[in-house]
Design a protein around this nucleic acid. Structure first.
Length: 678
DNA sequence: TCAGGGGGG
C-alpha cells in the first residue's frame, strides 16, 4: 500500500508521513476542566469571568451576538445568569432555541440539574410531540427553532418571552433564518425584547450587520467567549488524492500503525462511500496492529446499529467509525482522538425553475471542516487529517449556503403570509431565497387555492398554515371530506411524512428484507402499501420485535403514530370527518389526486415515466412497488421527485388519467394557462 | 432499471 504524504502549514521542506511537528492549532488550548456532571451544585466555566459584561450587554443592547466555541457554556450558563439577574420576573420566560430535538432535551436536562429544578418545572423543553414545561412555573425554556417559529403563528409578538436566544445560529437552519427575520420585525414593535444570537466567529459580523441595518447603530454588540476545547493539530495532503475513499482507508491504517491509543472518526459523504471504505479497511485488518473495530454510522441504520458506535472497543482494539455528516453535529461520540476528513459533504439543493431537488456532493465549508476537526478534541488533544491540499482548502467557502436559499419555500411562505407578511420582496431576509423560489412558491400556493388573486391567504390557506404538513398533503386532508376517506388519508399523510420505513440491509439479509416488504404490497401502489404497513403495525401491538421481524423501522413507525395523532387534532378542529372508505381504494386514490394534482406522470413503455408538467423523463425509485410493474392504466401520481444520478419519483400510486382533469385542474384553470394533462 | 447527506413541524 502506498502511503499518503501529509504536511502541516508552516513546514518549509517536505514533511514526513504523519509529521507531528510544527502543529497548527485550530482551537486554542484551554485549561482542562473536570466533567460537568454536577448535582445540585453550581460550577462555572470560564464564561463566568464575563458574567457582568454579558449582563450589561443584554441590558443595554437589544441584540447581542455571542461568539462562543463548543464548551464555552453559553447554552447552559447564559440563560441561568439572565434568570438570576431578574429577566424572568413578572412571569417572563427566557427561550433558547436549538436546531435539533436531542440538543433541546439534553441541554434542558443538564440545566435543570444545575439549577436544582425538576425537568419541566423551572427549566423545561418543548419539541414536537413533547412539551415538558409548565405554563406557570417554567422560566428557562429550551426548544427547537421550529417550535418557536410555530409559536409566532399563535402569538406574533412572542409576548411571554423577555429574552430569546437563537443558539447555533451559524448553522443557518431554515427556521433559525425565518426567526431572525421575524424577530427583527418583532423588536421594532416590542423593543423590550432582548435577542441573543449565538454564532461561530466567521458569521458574527454578518449577523451584526443584519441587525444594525435600518436600526439604531448602537443596538447590537458582539461578545466573545473562551472555548473549552483541547488543541487539534491539522494536517493537509501534500498532493491531491485521486480517490478520497481509498485515501481515508489508507490514512486510518497509518494512524493505527503509528499512533498510540485513541479512536478514529472518518467523515465521508454517504452510504456508498462508507461501505466501500469499510471494505477496503477490512482487507487491511489482518495486517493491522493494533486490531481495529469497524463501525459504520449513517441515518439509514437502525437504532441498535447506531448505538454500536458508542460501545467501547475491546481492550487493545481501536474503534474506527466511518460516518456521514451525522457525526458533525447531530451525534457526538466520546473518545475520538483522530479525525479523517474527506472534505466533502452531500447536500440537498432545490432548483426553483424546475421544482426539482437534487442530492449533490460538494466540498465542505471552512466552518464545517472546523467543526469536524473539533470532534477530535473533546476529551484530549487530537489530530485531524484533511484529505485535500492546503491550497485547495484555502479555496473552500466560509460556510455552507443557508438552507433557506436551497429549499422549497412553499410552506415557509404560507406561514409568513399567515403572520401578515405579504410583501415578501420587502421582508428583511438574513439571506434572501432566490426570487424564482419565492415566485414558484407563490404560484404553487395560488394553484392550490391557499392564496387568492389579491395575494392574501384564503380561509383554507389560513388553516393550512397552522397544519404541520406540505400543502399537497393538506389539500388531501381537506378533500377527504368529499371522498369520505378521512381515516385512511390521515394515515397516508402521516406515513408520507416519515422516512426510511423499510430497513433493507446489504447482501443476503437484504434479500430476506425484500421478501418481508412484499407482504405489504398493495397493487394500487405505494400509498396503499404504506397504509397496509401502518395498519399491520397497530394491529400487532406496535411492537419493536414485530418490526424487526418484518424489516420495518420501529423508530419511523412510532413517529408515524405521533404524527397521525397530531394531524387528527387538526382535522377535528377543521371539522373534517374521520370516515373510513371501507376498503374502497378508488375513492382513496381520487383523494390522492386532489393533493398530487401537479405530480401526474404517464408510463412511456421503457419502464420510465414522463411528467405531466414539464414532460421530464423520470425513473421509478427501486423502493416503489411499481418498480417492477407497469401501471395498468398507464398513469400515476407521485409524492416526490428527486435527482441523484437520474430523476427519480418516490411513493407512487396508479390512477385513471381523467381523474387529473376531474380533481386536479380546477384551480389551475382559473389562471388560464394551466394544463392538467398534456 | 437497482437505492438511502442531515435536520425541523
Amino acid at each position: 500500500m502506498s502511503s499518503l504524504k501529509f504536511w502541516v502549514p508552516g513546514t518549509a521542506g517536505p514533511g514526513s508521513t504523519l509529521d507531528r511537528e510544527n502543529q497548527e492549532s485550530i482551537v486554542q488550548s484551554a485549561p482542562a476542566f473536570a466533567s460537568l456532571s454536577i448535582h445540585n451544585q453550581r460550577e462555572r466555566l470560564p464564561i463566568f469571568k464575563h458574567r457582568q459584561k454579558l449582563l450589561y450587554a443584554v441590558e443595554k443592547c437589544g441584540v447581542m451576538i455571542v461568539v462562543g466555541q463548543t464548551g464555552s457554556g453559553k447554552t447552559t450558563q447564559l440563560p441561568q445568569y439572565l434568570m438570576e439577574a431578574g429577566w424572568t420576573s413578572e412571569g417572563n420566560i427566557i427561550a433558547c432555541t436549538q436546531p435539533r430535538r436531542v440538543a433541546a432535551t439534553s441541554v434542558a436536562n443538564r440545566v435543570a440539574t444545575e439549577v436544582g429544578s425538576l425537568l419541566g418545572d423551572e427549566v423545561g423543553y418543548t419539541i414536537r410531540f413533547e412539551d415538558v414545561s409548565d405554563k406557570q412555573r417554567t422560566r428557562i425554556l429550551y426548544m427547537t427553532d421550529g417550535m418557536l417559529f410555530r409559536e409566532t403563528l399563535v402569538d406574533p409578538l412572542l409576548s411571554r418571552y423577555s429574552v430569546i436566544m437563537l443558539d447555533e445560529a451559524h448553522e443557518r437552519s431554515l427556521y433559525t433564518d425565518l426567526l431572525l427575520g421575524v424577530l427583527k420585525k418583532i423588536r421594532r414593535k416590542r423593543p423590550s425584547l432582548r435577542l441573543i444570537v449565538s454564532s461561530a466567529t466567521l458569521d458574527a459580523a454578518a449577523f451584526l450587520d443584519y441587525f444594525t441595518s435600518n436600526a439604531t447603530p448602537d443596538d447590537a454588540t458582539i461578545v466573545s467567549l473562551e472555548g473549552r476545547m483541547f488543541s487539534v493539530q491539522v494536517f493537509y495532503l501534500r498532493e491531491p488524492a485521486p480517490d478520497y475513499v481509498t485515501a481515508a482507508a489508507t490514512t486510518a491504517f497509518e494512524i493505527n500503525s503509528k499512533h498510540g491509543p485513541g479512536d478514529i472518526l472518518i467523515f465521508l459523504t454517504g452510504r456508498e462511500d462508507i461501505d466501500r471504505c469499510l471494505e477496503e479497511l477490512s482487507e487491511i485488518i489482518p495486517r493491522s496492529s493494533p486490531r481495529i473495530a469497524l463501525r459504520p454510522l449513517h441515518a439509514g441504520l437502525s437504532t441498535e446499529e447506531q448505538l454500536a458506535v458508542f460501545e467501547p472497543a475491546e481492550p487493545g482494539t481501536r474503534k474506527v467509525i466511518v460516518s456521514t455528516n451525522i457525526a458533525e453535529a447531530s451525534v457526538t461520540i466520546s473518545g475520538i482522538k483522530f479525525v479523517v476528513d474527506s472534505c466533502f459533504v452531500k447536500i440537498r439543493v432545490y432548483n426553483p425553475t424546475t421544482g426539482l431537488a437534487s442530492l449533490v456532493t460538494v466540498p465542505t465549508s471552512v466552518a464545517s471542516a472546523t467543526q469536524r476537526a473539533g470532534r477530535a478534541g473533546r476529551t484530549s488533544p487530537g489530530i485531524c487529517y484533511r484529505l485535500c491540499t492546503q491550497q485547495a482548502f484555502n479555496l473552500l467557502p466560509h460556510s455552507t449556503p443557508p438552507e433557506i436559499t436551497r429549499t422549497d419555500m412553499t410552506t415557509p411562505i404560507l406561514q409568513l403570509k399567515s403572520l401578515g407578511i405579504d410583501n415578501l420582496m420587502k421582508f428583511e431576509w438574513v439571506s434572501a431565497p432566490p426570487a424564482e423560489s419565492i415566485l414558484r412558491a407563490l404560484e404553487t400556493l395560488f394553484a392550490a387555492g391557499m392564496v387568492g388573486e389579491d395575494g392574501r391567504l384564503t380561509p383554507t390557506g389560513q388553516k393550512v398554515a397552522e397544519c404541520p404538513v406540505e400543502v399537497g398533503i393538506a389539500r388531501m386532508l381537506f378533500s377527504s371530506k368529499e371522498f369520505q376517506c378521512g381515516e385512511e388519508i390521515l394515515t397516508i399523510a402521516a406515513m408520507c411524512s416519515i422516512q426510511d420505513v423499510f430497513i433493507i440491509p446489504d447482501g443476503a439479509p437484504g434479500a430476506l428484507a425484500e421478501l418481508e416488504r412484499r407482504k405489504f404490497t398493495a397493487e394500487e401502489g405505494d400509498h396503499l402499501t404504506l397504509l397496509n404497513v401502518y395498519n399491520a403495525f397497530t394491529r400487532y401491538g406496535k411492537s419493536s420485535s414485530w418490526c424487526k421481524n418484518h424489516a420495518l423501522s420501529f423508530r419511523a413507525l412510532s413517529r408515524a403514530i405521533s404524527i397521525r395523532a397530531q394531524l387528527k387534532k387538526y382535522m377535528q378542529r377543521f371539522n373534517l370527518p374521520l370516515e373510513s372508505c371501507q376498503g374502497d381504494a378508488k375513492r382513496l386514490r381520487k383523494c390522492l389526486v386532489s393533493g398530487y394534482w401537479r405530480n401526474g406522470a404517464r408510463w412511456v413503455g421503457d419502464g420510465t415515466f414522463k411528467s405531466v408538467r414539464g414532460n421530464r423523463t423520470m425513473y421509478v425509485h427501486p423502493t416503489s412497488v411499481l418498480f417492477t410493474r407497469k401501471p395498468r392504466s398507464g398513469w400515476v401520481v407521485f409524492h416526490e421527485m428527486e435527482e441523484t444520478k437520474k430523476t427519480q419519483i418516490r411513493i407512487i400510486t396508479e390512477i385513471e388519467s381523467e381523474w387529473l382533469l376531474d380533481y386536479g385542474h380546477k384551480y389551475e384553470d382559473k389562471r388560464g394557462n394551466g394544463t392538467a394533462v398534456g
